[in-house]
């Protein structure tokens, strides 16, 4: 970073605009039944966007679970699960049948410190057992996994959820400016308005198995 370089204000998001972007995002999610909701913290005016998805277990993780089952002498409940044929997860093979699924819970929170959104998530097996960082990594998109492993502690870490106080994984926000700045500058040059949440989540979501349907980029309007 150059000393004295002034960051364009557009790289950051004030909380009011964050709320507005989320509201627009949620409206479209509801219209296509994509599952996002707003979770309000009771007794407070704070909240976050939330989505829960079931993800079929990939083979490498299945092997680990198998070893885990033998080691623990416990039996995991098994269900046949047919992957959604419309699953657009790029680069991840669709799994037609599997013996287990994982429950991923994604939260989008506003960070007043960094003045940007931050993605938190947690993952568990259907028996409630939480996944470790290593297990979560095996579900990370292969294109990102190598980069994450090069500096594992700085990118994806277990953190306390600032509103719930429970352990969650967090994609560290320090890289957000790196990819949002060019996107925002390009939009500005083309005199286009951008819904920050749509652009941001389209980049960070797939890193941890969260897809953003393409219609969000065309149907969700940007705040004025």
């Amino acid at each position: 970073m150059m000393t004295g370089e002034r960051k364009p204000a557009s790289c950051f998001l004030d909380e009011k605009t964050f709320r507005l972007c989320c509201r627009l995002f949620l409206q479209h999610s509801e219209s296509i039944q994509d599952g996002w909701i707003w979770e309000q913290i009771k007794g407070s005016d704070e909240g976050f966007m939330k989505k829960t998805v079931l993800i079929p277990v990939k083979s490498s993780l299945l092997d680990k679970q198998h070893e885990s089952i033998q080691a623990e002498n416990t039996e995991l409940p098994t269900d046949d699960f047919e992957a959604d044929a419309e699953d657009e997860t790029a680069g991840v093979d669709a799994v037609c049948e599997s013996h287990a699924v994982l429950r991923y819970e994604y939260h989008v929170l506003y960070s007043c410190s960094y003045q940007i959104p931050v993605l938190y998530f947690r993952a568990s097996a259907l028996d409630g057992r939480s996944l470790s960082l290593e297990e979560v990594w095996s579900n990370v998109h292969p294109n990102y996994r190598q980069r994450l492993k090069q500096e594992p502690w700085d990118t994806l870490t277990q953190q306390e959820h600032p509103l719930l106080g429970q352990p969650f994984f967090m994609l560290h926000p320090c890289r957000t400016e790196e990819f949002m700045k060019p996107a925002l500058e390009l939009a500005h040059a083309q005199n286009r308005k951008v819904n920050y949440i749509v652009s941001w989540l389209s980049v960070v979501g797939p890193v941890v198995g969260l897809d953003v349907p393409l219609s969000f980029s065309t149907a969700v309007s940007a705040p004025d």
Partner: peptide
């Protein structure tokens, strides 16, 4: 207690948390 505590397998985890806090403080 998985629902209450973060795992801490090595000192690198503590270091990462510590530096993350310093970076956040400096952002402020």
């Amino acid at each position: 207690p998985e629902q209450d505590l973060l795992h801490c397998s090595t000192n690198s985890v503590i270091e990462a948390h510590f530096m993350s806090c310093i970076k956040e403080a400096d952002a402020l």
